[in-house]
Nucleic acid binder design. Structure first.
Lengths: 162, 162
DNA sequence: CATATATAGTGGCATATACCAGTAAATTCC
DNA sequence: GGAATTTACTGGTATATGCCACTATATATG
């Protein structure tokens, strides 16, 4: 049986690129988790990404766009675009920094903070399900691992050519 | 020192949502890896996602769109959208299935197959860097872990309420 | 066989995310 | 202190990804 023939009845190969490419593997998992978390959180008006972003804003002390982009490991302009619907809907606002007039600080509006608080309970349900399905210890370890992969330290190791 | 005060000089909190939310953690890592892999692969005309997709097509035996979407854990319509630029650029083509006239099978064109082969060497460089930075064993284990998280088996465990 | 239902794909719309070019403000360097 | 450079953000463009509504085809059911 050749590799190409080793396929299930749907014509899929059992051995996908995601078992060889870490980048593909992570993206694929993020699509699945996005799905699972949104379903588990039920009928809410926010996307998972938006809730994550608002949660990080809530945890921060009025970060500038730059700060927040770095924390989220997100392109600055991508962050700006992603915030637009939240600003439009009155959940987030940008306030110019007093010291540096180039910078804008991100804050939740009262409504945004209330929304974030309310949804946290729903998010916790999803997260609890993940922990139960995956194992609480392993779950924490996985998040630490992924945080490491997302770090500058890892980027330096990755780009170091020795 | 309160949590809110425990911030580095950029105003970021040390303790981000990604340490608590597995969904956020995976998305964040996928942004970073997308970055690192694309940089490591150098100046190519394809996005990482497009290369992954073409690699999976190359590994499959002319899957239908449905098959491919399931393998990639991707929404069917999202897959259709993602393939459009590749079809437009003559790297991929869709051929109607002979038996089921609803279904279309995905295949690489000759140019697409050649492109995919050529870029594989570059991708391997990026993957080797990942393995070196993260550890070859741990790297394989991580991919298996992520494949599990991406599986229907995991979805069932996640959605099981007992 | 005719109708009801299920499946595969498409198109529209919205968000997610990145790169690049441009603007404005701050900082560095004669 | 004024020019050169760096930094923070914005807007445009392109891909990534998902949901919904719709069409066409296949399958199941009476």
């Amino acid at each position: 049986m050749t590799d190409k023939d080793r396929q299930d009845k749907q014509g899929q190969t059992e051995d996908g690129i995601w078992l060889h490419c870490s980048n593909s593997a992570v993206r694929r998992a993020s699509r699945h988790l996005g799905q699972l978390y949104e379903d588990a959180m039920g009928d809410i008006d926010l996307k998972g990404t938006q809730f994550s972003l608002m949660s990080q804003i809530a945890r921060s002390n009025e970060p500038t766009l730059k700060n927040l982009a770095e924390a989220m490991v997100m392109d600055l302009s991508a962050l700006g675009h992603t915030l637009k619907p939240l600003i439009r809907d009155g959940l987030v606002q940008l306030v110019p920094d007093a010291q540096d007039r180039r910078a804008k600080r991100v804050r939740l509006t009262d409504m945004g903070a209330a929304t974030q608080r309310d949804l946290t309970a729903r998010w916790q349900i999803a997260q609890d399900r993940f922990d139960k399905a995956f194992g609480k210890e392993k779950s924490e370890e996985l998040r630490r691992t992924l945080a490491f992969i997302s770090s500058n330290e890892f980027a330096e190791a990755f780009n170091r050519n020795d």
